[in-house]
Amino acid sequence: MPNQHGAWAMLAVPFLAGTFLGEPRWVHLPLFATWLLGYLAVYHAQQWLRLTRISRNPRAPRRHVRPALCFGAAAAVCGLPVAALHPWLLLAAACAVPFVAVNSLYAYRNRERSLWNGLAAVVPACAMLPVALRLGGGMWASGVAPALACLLYFAGTVPYVKTMIRERNSRAYYRGSVAYHCVALVAAALLDPWLAVPFALYLARAVGLPGRGVRVGVVGAVEVVGSGVLLGVVVGVF
């Protein structure tokens, strides 16, 4: 399984928010399975790309071939019947291709931890909110504001987590993360005043936690709570 544990919240929260903002239907279950299995297939395909280029051991990239094929086949089994019922999902999937291509390019260059690579991954994940909402009978326009709220949060986690782990000694990253969260607080409040409450908390953790030697497990736990709060507030206010 991928070791990028923070990705699971990013995959789940926008989708669940879109599901509950619309009318939850049984068809959401195979679509959610397709979404998660597709992520796993792409992850292993990108690891194959990365290791094919940088590893001297030919067995290293090959170990990702079987998982990529198995997860890809499982995603197709779950997704094709849903796409047959709702062909517009194929267009939605096509819109994600440029972002997957960017992530694949960064993987090939062995720069998966790049800030821009993380931001590119956030966009299609948050775009699943209006997709799930539309599948539940909602309108596309109704999903824009909550998707932007998710985008503001998850985009902020990319520089923030770096200030806690890989870039914990970088003042430039810290200042950039704090500046982003200040802007995000204002933007979120413009979307809905109630969003100022969780985004004020996100700003506080971006200001106060870096440099305090917080363990990685605690960093992850804080983000799980932050993601849960976001889900509750988004579903509540929209």
Rank of each mutant, 00 (worst) to 15 (best):
P2E: 05
N3E: 15
Q4H: 12
H5L: 15
H5Y: 15
G6K: 05
A7I: 03
A9H: 00
P14Y: 04
F15R: 01
L16I: 11
G18N: 05
L21H: 02
P24L: 06
P30G: 01
L31D: 08
F32M: 06
T34K: 02
W35S: 00
W35V: 01
A45G: 14
Q46L: 12
Q46A: 15
Q46T: 13
Q47E: 15
L49S: 11
L49V: 04
L51E: 12
L51A: 14
L51R: 12
R53Y: 11
N57Y: 08
R63T: 09
H64I: 11
H64Q: 10
A68I: 05
L69A: 15
F71M: 07
G72S: 00
A73Y: 00
A73W: 10
A74T: 00
A75I: 06
V77D: 00
V77C: 07
V77P: 05
C78S: 14
V82Q: 02
L85G: 00
H86Y: 10
W88R: 09
L89V: 07
L90T: 11
A92C: 15
A92E: 07
A94R: 05
A94F: 11
A94M: 14
V97M: 10
V100A: 13
A101M: 14
V102R: 07
N103T: 11
N103Q: 11
S104T: 07
A107M: 01
A107I: 03
R109T: 06
R111G: 02
E112M: 03
R113M: 11
S114E: 12
N117F: 00
A120D: 08
A121Q: 10
V123D: 07
L129E: 08
L133Q: 09
L133W: 01
L135M: 12
G136P: 06
G136D: 09
G138V: 12
P146V: 06
A149D: 04
Y153P: 00
F154D: 05
F154P: 09
G156H: 09
T157N: 06
V158S: 03
V161F: 02
T163G: 02
E167C: 06
E167V: 04
R168K: 14
R168L: 06
S170V: 02
S170Y: 01
S170E: 12
S170L: 08
R171L: 15
R171H: 08
Y174S: 00
G176V: 08
S177K: 13
A179P: 02
A179C: 01
A179K: 03
V183M: 13
L185V: 13
V186A: 14
A187I: 04
A189F: 03
L190H: 07
L191C: 10
P193T: 13
A196C: 07
V197C: 04
P198W: 11
F199W: 13
A200R: 01
Y202D: 06
L203W: 13
A206G: 01
A206T: 15
L209V: 14
P210A: 08
G211Q: 05
V214Q: 05
G217R: 12
A221N: 09
V222R: 11
V225D: 00
G226A: 13
G228E: 08
G232I: 04
G232W: 03
V235R: 08
V235N: 06
V235I: 15
G236T: 04
V237F: 09
F238V: 00
F238E: 03
